[in-house]
Simulated scan of single mutants.
Amino acid sequence: MTAQVLKQHLCERHSFAFWASMEMTMTTISSAAAAPVRSSMVGGLLRLLRVWGDALATYWVRREAIKTLRQLDDRTLRDIGISRCHIETAVTGDLDLELVRIR
């Protein structure tokens, strides 16, 4: 049934005045297509590589800091507020300085 025939049928059958003046048009609803799976996989791989790169860079910086602190003498370490056995935990940030005060 076409729109014109439907309009005429409604006007005759129900005799509503507004049906005569009403214009029927058809609309389509369009939605964007889903993103291809490949691009999300590439994005996930790039995020993973970035996370690994950041972790590797952090590891290298921490190892260099530990190496530098180990080259210091005990007196200098005491002035900083750490002892030789706490160098690694101090570099990683796990050391609670309130608990390990050196006298």
Rank of each mutant, 00 (worst) to 15 (best):
S39F: 07
T89R: 12
W19M: 13
A20G: 13
D74K: 04
L99Y: 08
L6A: 09
K7P: 05
V91Q: 02
A35Y: 02
I102S: 02
R62I: 03
L95A: 05
G81W: 04
L45R: 00
M24S: 08
M24F: 11
V100M: 12
L46E: 02
G44D: 01
S40F: 10
A3G: 01
V61E: 03
S83P: 08
H9I: 11
T2L: 12
S15P: 11
Y59S: 04
R62K: 09
V51I: 01
R101A: 11
S30L: 12
S30A: 15
R47M: 04
G81F: 00
F18M: 11
C85Q: 15
G43Q: 09
T92H: 05
M1K: 05
E88G: 07
G44T: 04
L77G: 02
L48C: 07
V5N: 02
R84N: 01
A32E: 01
W60K: 01
I80Q: 06
A17G: 15
R84G: 00
G81P: 00
E64M: 13
A34E: 04
A20Q: 09
A55Y: 03
A90E: 00
D73V: 07
D96T: 06
D94L: 15
R78S: 10
L97M: 03
G53I: 05
T58S: 06
H86N: 07
R70K: 15
R13Y: 13
A90I: 09
K7C: 06
L69M: 05
L56I: 00
A17Q: 07
S83D: 12
R13A: 13
G93M: 02
M22R: 03
V5F: 14
A57K: 00
S15A: 14
A17D: 04
R62Y: 08
L77A: 01
F18G: 05
F18V: 03
L48R: 06
I87P: 01
D74I: 05
